[in-house]
Design a protein around this nucleic acid. Sequence first.
RNA 1: CGGGGCGUGGCGCAGCUCGGUAGCGCGCCUGCUUUGGGAGCAGGAGGUCCCCGGUUCGAAUCCGGGCGCCCCGACCA
Length: 486
Amino acid sequence: MAEDKGITPQKQDFAAWYNEVVLRGELADYSPVRGSMVIRPWGYGIWENMQRALDARFKETGHENAYFPLLIPMSFIEKEKEHVEGFKPELAVVTHAGGKELEEPLVVRPTSETIIYSMYAKWVQSYRDLPILLNQWANVMRWELRTRLFLRTSEFLWQEGHTAHATAEEAEEETRRMLDVYRTFMEEWIAMPPLTGLKTESEKFAGAVRSYACEALMQDNRALQAGTSHFLGQNFSRQFDLTFQTEGGEEDYAWNTSWGVSTRLVGGMVLTHGDDRGVVVPPKLAPTQVVVIPIWRTEEEGTAVREKAESLALRLRERGVRVRVDARDQLTPGAKFYEWERKGVPIRMEVGPKDLKKEQVVLVSRVELAGEKRKAFLPEGEAVESLPGRLDAFQTALLERAVARREENSYRGVESIGELAEIMEGPGGFVYTGWSGDPEVEERVKAETKATIRCIPDPEFRSKKAPTRCVGGGEAKMEVVWARAY
RNA sequence: CGGGGCGUGGCGCAGCUCGGUAGCGCGCCUGCUUUGGGAGCAGGAGGUCCCCGGUUCGAAUCCGGGCGCCCCGACCA
């Protein structure tokens, strides 16, 4: 029976590995409707921790939460030309309600720009009403052809920030600020270090003037667009009459931004840190950071050991650690070890009769950190005292590991499509090349290599020596990063 | 949309070639023994075999049609 208990190894079949890790780690399960999923408590707890951290940052940067409705009049979506074209194929439309056909079909929001800016139009008269800085936590629906748990489902949870400003400069600044919020969050909380930069015309959000994105490199060396921030210019303002009187008394259209991250981040976390044992959850995101497993034989031992486990848990909670004691009697300790490892709890604490006598505990780390054994036998006091530090070290180590992996799989100075194709067919990764800015080149490279331009990287990610040749021949006007994407 | 796979107790599957009244593992329930890396034994519960139609004395099995889900390729956070 030991045979079917393992998870398909990453190296054998990455897609199968991912599915099994998500399902068996109890992050999510398939729902009866094609392409939609149920987020289970463990997965939702991770999302809640993400929400908490992000929400705090949104508030710190001056935003408030609000809620706009799920249903949007079809005519709204149709107002912004590029916006409709971008979303039409994946809209779910309500045509009947209350037992009869509706006069005007309603769209289940794929995103909320239209409804939100139509409301802003109502609320804004003067430059004094600006800026409006709102965010909403919501579900959205995009009828995707091909779906994957967390990474692409028909319905998903996200936040969408929508702001209106009096000047383009201010809106642009907001766009960049929120991209940076995302980037920092991904690094500090998910330990998933993204590349940031500008999207090309063909990859930008439908309806935006410019899109910026966080692009993270997963363990299979494919890129995951993990967060986007858009400068919308006056595109939506014009369609929804979002005008205001300037200080000089003239009428002008407001400048908008929108930005979002979704439950896709949970998938990104799995694809960044997971291993053949299952999920690995960074301590800052883990609903349970330390699981205490009492081990006993006799009832007498059981009582003593469980008591000890509870008192240790209490002491850890006093130090701000999220702890859970798993005292279930029906499972052997080994079964619990496997279960919590599958779910990715960062640290396990074992307490048995032997430890009671020696006044020690066993700490086992979910992953082997640089230069440390997974298992440590420590005096109780020391274990308790050291745990917050251990969790921090765990978090830091994950980020360092991920940064190192990203750099090891980044290729700079690539000058030809052939070279790029070779990397894509082989190991994959981020490939930096020069680009003329010609969409035709972008299209051709994509057709030949299946790689897309993930972004025009921000200055800090650019190569020391700027490329001079475009990957498709001719002169380079800028540097871009290619990868096969999720 | 194209290609592939699958649909049988809660889960994973066998049975289908060659029709004869449904089985295995895990899980679940009860009891006893267990518990430091996925416990053992004994007893037990649980199934419209995806749906509709056809062939047949008889269909999980053969034939026709439909539906659903998953995976792989073109579009997307």
